[in-house]
Amino acid sequence: MAAVNNPSLLILTSLSSGPKHGHALLLDIESFADVRLGPGTLYGAITRLEEQGLIEPLDPEDRRRPYRITAAGTMTLAASLEGLRRIVRTGTTRLAAAT
């Protein structure tokens, strides 16, 4: 079972280490989350993140356009990760108590 499969969160996490274009995002996400996003799913999430101002496009390189995370995107990612940390803490504590 994949730990996290929210495409937006995965993209923000990937972009937190630097700008990437679509193909690089897919490879990076697969390497750290073991999730292979479909191209349509990836670009759907990119569309939404750009609309929300959480990522921004850079100048295209050939036909590929890199994206980078914005300050708002970094804050959103931090808040999401904190939420996940709470879930992990709660789950770990409850699991320990149950065993």
């Binding site: 274009h21 679509g22 193909h23 897919l26 191209p39 349509g40 990836l42 670009y43 990119i46 569309t47 295209p60 050939d62 036909r63 590929r64 356009r65």
Partner: peptide, 10 residues
């Protein structure tokens, strides 16, 4: 807006 990028990825 995104067509060329998606095509390049595909």
């Amino acid at each position: 807006r995104y067509g060329e990028e998606l095509l390049a990825l595909l």
